Amino acid sequence: GPREVTMKKGDILTLLNSTNKDWWKVEVNDRQGFVPAAYVKKLDSGTGKELVLALYDYQ
């Protein structure tokens, strides 16, 4: 199956793709996968990378 990404509340993840309104593709610890968009919030990183903050645990 697809590689699952797990996250804990407060984690910072790299946002790869947010074109789908329900599932965003993120990368964390060299793993890529989809997380519910409602579970993360975009951060203003000030760099080229888009980052998101995990609002809830997800696994």
Rank of each mutant, 00 (worst) to 15 (best):
A54H: 00
L43Y: 07
A38S: 14
K42V: 08
Q32N: 06
G10L: 01
D30Q: 08
D30P: 02
T47I: 13
D30L: 07
P2F: 15
W24M: 03
D57A: 06
G1C: 15
A38W: 10
L53D: 00
K25V: 14
I12D: 00
K9S: 06
L51Y: 13
T6M: 11
L53K: 06
L51I: 09
K21S: 11
P2V: 12
D22F: 15
A38E: 10
A37V: 06
Y56I: 10
T19K: 10
G46P: 14
T6G: 08
V52P: 00
M7Q: 02
L13H: 03
M7R: 00
S45D: 10
V40K: 01
T14Q: 08
P2H: 13
E4M: 13
S45N: 11
Q59P: 15
L15A: 02
G10Q: 02
E4L: 14
L51A: 06
G10R: 01
E27C: 13
A38L: 09
V35N: 01
A37Q: 04
S18V: 06
G1V: 12
V28P: 01
L43R: 01
D22C: 14
V26P: 00
V26M: 00
L55D: 01
A37L: 02
E4Q: 12
N17Y: 05
L51N: 05
G10H: 04
E4D: 13
Q59C: 10
P36Q: 04
K49N: 10
D22H: 14
L51H: 07
V28Y: 12
L51G: 02
L13Y: 07
Q32A: 11
W24R: 00
M7K: 00
E27H: 05
G1R: 13
G33Y: 15
D57E: 05
V35Y: 01
G33M: 15
W23F: 06
E50M: 13
L15K: 00
N17G: 08
R31V: 15
V40T: 03
L16F: 03
G48N: 09
D30N: 11
N20M: 07
E4G: 15
N20H: 12
T6I: 14
N20P: 04
W23H: 03
L15E: 00
N17K: 06
T19H: 09
R3I: 13
N20F: 06
V26L: 03
V28N: 13
T47D: 15
I12K: 05
A54G: 02
T14C: 08
V40C: 10
E27M: 11
T19D: 15
A37P: 04
Q59N: 14
G1H: 14
L43H: 03
R31N: 09
K41H: 09
T19W: 08
P36G: 03
V52G: 09
K41E: 11
V52L: 08
V5Q: 04
R31K: 12
